[in-house]
Nucleic acid binder design. Structure first.
Length: 791
DNA sequence: ATAGGGTTAG
C-alpha cells in the first residue's frame, strides 16, 4: 500500500462531471485528500488533463498535496515538474512529504533549491530531522533560522526544536530554547509546552513537568498523555492513574497509555481491570489496546483470557497489524503453547524480526534448544536480542558450553555483544563453574565500558558466587553504581549458598533499611539461606513474617522450604501437618523436602509415604531413589537399600558418568570417572578402605552408616558413578600438601557419606575445602561443615 | 502522546 506503482490517471479514470471548473475541482480535490480516496483524486486529475483546462497554481498545489497525502510521491513529482512556476507552497508540500517518508537528503535538496523559504518549510525540515533521530541537524537548522532573523519562528518551530532537545536529553539546551520561546511570546502555545513537558518527562524530572502542567491553561490530549507516560516511566503507576482519573474527557490514547503502563510494570491484573472498564464504556479499541492486553495476559499466564482476546480480534478486525500478530505469538510462546505459536507464525504472510525473535525466544526459554537453534539458523537477519535469548536459554537449561559457543560466534558475526548477551554468557560460566572464563568476561565488560550495567553486574555476582568466589561477588556488589532489588537478592543468595546464613540475614535487613521492597524471590532466598546454614528457627520466623509484615503470600515453593526447615530440625510431625494444611495441592518439591527430612532423622514410615507420592508425580526421577536409599542406609536397613537400587536398575534410572577436577592454586587436577579407564581406580578404593578405617577410629562415622564397602560392587553392577566421582576428589585431596583453601568447582551432589568424608578430609589436610553442590557450596573446615547438617 | 520480541536473583 505504501509503494503504489507509478500510474498516471487515464481516460478510464475520468468522472463525468458537468462543467468542470477550477473551484469545483479544488473543493473535490480537498475532499479526496481528507478522505484519502485514491480513485477520486486520480479521477479529478484525469479531468484536469482531459478537459484542456489551464489549471491555476492553486489547483496544482492541491493536486500535489493530494498525491503527497496518499504517498504517491512519483505522481506528485510529475505534477510538480510540469508546473510553469513552482511557488513556495508546492515546494514545501513536496519537501514535507519527502521529509515525512525519511528521504531527508531529497527533502534537503528541495529546501536548498527554494528561492525563498517560509517558516513552514523550516518547520518541516526541523521536525523531520528530529523524527529521524538527527537531533543535531535539526537544531543547527533552527539556529540558522534564528541567526538570519527570517523567517520568524512560530509555535511549530519551537515545538520541533524542543522535541529535538528532548531527543538529545539536553536540559540546558532546552532551557535556552524555552527562553527564546518566552521572548517570542510563544511559550504558552500548547504544543510548545507539551514539548517542554516531554523534555522533563524524558529526563525523569516529574516535578518540573508537573509544575508546567499545572500552570498550563490549555491542555490537549497530548499534554495529558505525556504526563501519564511520564509517571509510567518512573514507575509511579499511582501517579499516572491520578492524572488519568482527573482528565475529564478520557480518550482512547490515554486509556491505551495507562493500560500499557500497567502491563509494562508487571501490574497485569490492573491492566486487565482497566481494559474491562474501557471495553464496557465502548471506547474505540485499536491495535495499541490489543497489544497491551495480549501482553498482560501473556505475562501472568492467562492463556484462556488471551485466547478470548485472540478470537475477538480475529473476529472483529478486517486487518490485523504485525505488532498484534507478534503479541499473539508471544502470548502462546510465553504460556508454553509453542504448537499454537508456531501455527500462527507459519500462517503469517508478513513477518519481521520481532516475529522471529518471539518464536526463538519461546523455544529457548522453554529449554527446547534444538528447536530454537533450528529457527535461529534459518534467520537471515538477527539482532542482539536474538543472540541473547539463544545464549541465556542454553545457559539456563544445562547447555552452558553451547551458550558460550554462541556467545563467541556472536562476537565474530556481530561486532559488539550487549550487556544482556554478557549476562547470558556469565550464566553459562556460573552453571559450568568455569571461574577463569567468567573472570575473562568480567575483564571484557570493563574494556567495553559495560561494567556499570545492572544486568551484567547481577549476572557477574552470581557467576562469582557459583564459582566459589564469594569475595569477588561481594566486591562486584559493592562497586555496582545502581544496584536494584535483583542485585540485593543475588548477593543475599550468594552468602546463603556459601553457608553464611547469618550474614545473608543481615544483608536482608540492610536491604529493607535501604528502602528496597522484598519480593517472593527475596524470601525464597532468605529461607534457603537459613536452611543451608542450619538456622532453622530464624527460617521459620521469616516464613511467618513474609505475609504478616510484608504482605507476600507464600507460594508452594516457600512452603517447600518451610517443610525443609522443619524436617531438618527433626520436627517431622509439624512438617507433615504443614503439608496437610497448606493452601495448595502439594507438589513434588514439597514431598521431596519431607522425604529429605525423614532421611535425616530416620523416619521410615513417613519417608515411605512421601516417596510413594513422589513416585506418582515423577516416576523416573533419580533424586527420589537416592533419598529413599539414603533413608534406609541411615538406619542400617541394607536390604531396603538393595531393594531401592534394584528398582532403580529395573526402571532404567541411572546417573550420568562425569569428570571431576579440582582447582588448587594454579594447577588443575582432572579425574576421569568412567571406572574402566580410571587409572587410579584401584588406588582410590584402597585409599577409601584406609580412609574408612581411620574415620571410624576418630569417631566421624558410626559403624552402621558407613556404606563404602558397597561402592565397588554397585559401581560395576548398576553403573552408578556418583560415589566414585566424589571419592576420586577425596583421593586427590589426600595427596595435596597443606596450605591455602581448596575449591572444587565441579558440581558434586554431596550425599551423606561423602559429606562425612569431606569433613574428615578437611581435618586431615588442615585446610578449608569448598565443594560445589548444585547451586550451593559446602565449606568444610576443621572437620565441620557450614551447613551444620546432620550427616 | 499510546503498542509487539530480551537480561540478571531462588
Amino acid at each position: 500500500m505504501k509503494h503504489a506503482p507509478y500510474h498516471l490517471p487515464t481516460k478510464q479514470d475520468t468522472i463525468t462531471s458537468p462543467h468542470p471548473n477550477s473551484w469545483r475541482l479544488a473543493s473535490l480535490l480537498q475532499a479526496s485528500t481528507r478522505t484519502q480516496s485514491r480513485p477520486r483524486g486520480r479521477a479529478i486529475h484525469a479531468v484536469i488533463i482531459t478537459s484542456g483546462l489551464k489549471p491555476r497554481a492553486h489547483l496544482l498545489n492541491l493536486l500535489i498535496a493530494f498525491y503527497c497525502s496518499t504517498e504517491d510521491l512519483k505522481c506528485a513529482h510529475h505534477v510538480f515538474d510540469r508546473m510553469p512556476q513552482r511557488d513556495v507552497v508546492a515546494r514545501t508540500t513536496l519537501l514535507a512529504a519527502h521529509a515525512r517518508s525519511g528521504a531527508l537528503a531529497v527533502a534537503h535538496q528541495i529546501f536548498d533549491e527554494m528561492p525563498t523559504r517560509d517558516a513552514v518549510a523550516y518547520n518541516a525540515m526541523i521536525s523531520a530531522y528530529g523524527h529521524h533521530g538527527e537531533f543535531r541537524e535539526a537544531l543547527s537548522l533552527f539556529r540558522a533560522m534564528l541567526e538570519q532573523g527570517k523567517p520568524r519562528p512560530d509555535g511549530f518551530t519551537f515545538t520541533a526544536a524542543l522535541s529535538a532537545c528532548a531527543g538529545l536529553e539536553d536540559q540546558n539546551l532546552s532551557s535556552q530554547v524555552h527562553c527564546l520561546a518566552l521572548k517570542a511570546g510563544l511559550a504558552h502555545v500548547t504544543s510548545v509546552s507539551n514539548a517542554l513537558i516531554s523534555v522533563y518527562v524524558k529526563s525523569g524530572e516529574l516535578g518540573l513537568a508537573s509544575k508546567m502542567f499545572t500552570e498550563l491553561l490549555k491542555r490537549d490530549e497530548i499534554t495529558w498523555t505525556t504526563m501519564i507516560t511520564g509517571f509510567v516511566r518512573i514507575g509511579d503507576l499511582e501517579g499516572a492513574r491520578r492524572v488519568f482519573e482527573v482528565m475529564r474527557d478520557r480518550f482512547d490514547v490515554a486509556w491505551n497509555a495507562m493500560i500499557a503502563g500497567y502491563a509494562q510494570h508487571g501490574l497485569c491484573m490492573e491492566a486487565l481491570d482497566l481494559f474491562r472498564d474501557m471495553f464496557g464504556k465502548d471506547i474505540m479499541l485499536d491495535e495499541f489496546t490489543y497489544t497491551s492486553l495480549l501482553s498482560a495476559c501473556a505475562n501472568i499466564g492467562l492463556v484462556r483470557t488471551g485466547m478470548e482476546a485472540h478470537a475477538y480480534i480475529v473476529h472483529r478486525e478486517a486487518e490485523i497489524s504485525l505488532p498484534v500478530w507478534n503479541a499473539i505469538i508471544s502470548l502462546y510462546a510465553k504460556c508454553g503453547r509453542m504448537e499454537v505459536a508456531m501455527r500462527v507464525f507459519d500462517a503469517m504472510r508478513e513477518k519481521d524480526l520481532v516475529s522471529w525473535n518471539a518464536v526463538v525466544s519461546g523455544y529457548a526459554t522453554l529449554g527446547m534448544i534444538t528447536e530454537a537453534r533450528e529457527i535461529f539458523e534459518k534467520m537471515i537477519e538477527r539482532n542482539e536480542l536474538t543472540w541473547t535469548v539463544m545464549i541465556s536459554g542454553s545457559a539456563q537449561h544445562g547447555q552452558g558450553e553451547e551458550g558460550l559457543r554462541l556467545f563467541n560466534r556472536m562476537r565474530h558475526e556481530d561486532s559488539r555483544p550487549c550487556d544482556f548477551a554478557f549476562a547470558g554468557a556469565l550464566t553459562a560460566c556460573a552453571s559450568l563453574g568455569t571461574l577463569r572464563h567468567g573472570a575473562q568476561l568480567h575483564a571484557q565488560l570493563i574494556q567495553l565500558g559495560l561494567d556499570a550495567s545492572v544486568s551484567a553486574g547481577n549476572a557477574l555476582m552470581t557467576m562469582y558466587a557459583r564459582c566459589g568466589a564469594v569475595e569477588s561477588a561481594e566486591r562486584a556488589f559493592r562497586v555496582m553504581p545502581t544496584p536494584d532489588a535483583v542485585s540485593w537478592n543475588a548477593m543475599i543468595a550468594a552468602l546463603g549458598q556459601h553457608g553464611r546464613g547469618s550474614e545473608a540475614i543481615m544483608l536482608f535487613e540492610r536491604m529493607l533499611v535501604a528502602g528496597y521492597k522484598p519480593d517472593r524471590v527475596t524470601f525464597l532466598t532468605v529461607l534457603s539461606s537459613c536452611s543451608h546454614s542450619g538456622l532453622v528457627n530464624e527460617g521459620c520466623k521469616y516464613f511467618d513474617l513474609m505475609d504478616r509484615a510484608y504482605g507476600i503470600k507464600p507460594g508452594p515453593d516457600h512452603y517447600a522450604r518451610l517443610v525443609d526447615l522443619l524436617g531438618r530440625a527433626g520436627r517431622l510431625q509439624e512438617a507433615k501437618q504443614t503439608v496437610e494444611t497448606m493452601p495448595f495441592y502439594p507438589d513434588a518439591c514439597i514431598w521431596e523436602a519431607l522425604l529429605a527430612g525423614c532421611r535425616n532423622h530416620g523416619d521410615m514410615e513417613l519417608g515411605l509415604m512421601a516417596a510413594e507420592r513422589l513416585f506418582e508425580l515423577r516416576p523416573r526421577h533419580d533424586g527420589t531413589y537416592v533419598l529413599l536409599s539414603n533413608m534406609y542406609a541411615s538406619i542400617g536397613k541394607w536390604e531396603g537399600v538393595a531393594k531401592v537400587r534394584k528398582t532403580m536398575k529395573d526402571m532404567g534410572v541411572k546417573k550420568e558418568p562425569g569428570c571431576s577436577w579440582i582447582e588448587v592454586d594454579n594447577q588443575v587436577h582432572v579425574f576421569l570417572v568412567d571406572d574402566t579407564v580410571h587409572p587410579y581406580v584401584h588406588e582410590v578404593y584402597a585409599l577409601l578402605e584406609k580412609l574408612g578405617v581411620s574415620m571410624k577410629k576418630l569417631g566421624y562415622i558410626p559403624d552402621t552408616r558407613f556404606v563404602l564397602h558397597d561402592v565397588g560392587l554397585e559401581q560395576k553392577e548398576y553403573g552408578l558413578s556418583t560415589h566414585s566421582e566424589k571419592l576420586a576428589v577425596g583421593f586427590g585431596l589426600l595427596k595435596l600438601p597443606k596450605g591455602s583453601e581448596i575449591r572444587v568447582l565441579k558440581n558434586l551432589r554431596i550425599c551423606g557419606d561423602c559429606h562425612t568424608a569431606m569433613k574428615f578430609m578437611s581435618k586431615v589436610v588442615e585446610r578449608e575445602i569448598i565443594v560445589r553442590d548444585g547451586k550451593r557450596f559446602h565449606h568444610f573446615k576443621h572437620g565441620e561443615c557450614s551447613c551444620r547438617d546432620y550427616w
